[in-house]
């Protein structure tokens, strides 16, 4: 008897959850890779961030432009050739529609980014690199997220 169509995986189905330690090992390795590169890119450095925001260095602008170009080409290739994940699933990519919160939240994030010279990925990388006080920056960021979650119903979106 042929398999009914309904039981097949639709193209937008939710990707399967990782199973067991090996399932999560891929995520861990990719995180290690990303953290390593962030440190080598000095992307955790407050001083380098000031240099960028004062337009006194090309480093980060060049880095961000080539990072984005690489990511964009990767996404384009996946779409163009309908590349599947290594476990054979259709790769799912979704975007959310624009809302004003992207601007309001983005501005607030930007203020913090300019002041603290750091964004979430580099916060984790800095802690690993031994900047122990950055644990407090992470805790403050968690608190900020918590306050946002509580206030969310009353904020414009």
């Amino acid at each position: 008897m042929p398999t009914p169509l309904a039981s097949q995986q639709p193209p937008t189905s939710v990707p399967s959850s990782p199973r067991g330690i090996l399932g999560y090992a891929r995520f861990l390795l990719l995180g290690v890779y990303f953290g390593f590169v962030l440190i080598k890119a000095q992307a955790v450095s407050w001083v380098k961030m000031q240099e960028m925001f004062r337009f006194e260095s090309f480093y980060y602008f060049g880095m961000f432009a080539t990072a984005l170009a690489t990511a964009w080409i990767g996404v384009w290739l996946i779409k163009r050739f309908q590349i599947r994940s290594i476990s054979g699933e259709t790769i799912r990519m979704v975007t959310r529609p624009f809302e004003r919160a992207n601007i309001y939240g983005g501005l607030i994030f930007g203020l913090g980014w300019g002041m603290a010279g750091i964004c979430p990925g580099p916060i984790y990388a800095s802690i690993g690199a031994g900047i122990s006080v950055m644990i407090l920056t992470l805790a403050s960021a968690v608190l900020g997220t918590y306050v946002y979650g509580v206030l969310k119903p009353r904020l414009p979106h």
Partner: peptide, 15 residues
């Protein structure tokens, strides 16, 4: 350390 971190966490989830 604290204020910057708070704004990063608040803003990133808001945005």
């Amino acid at each position: 350390i604290l204020g910057g971190g708070f704004l990063v966490g608040f803003g990133t989830r808001y945005g």
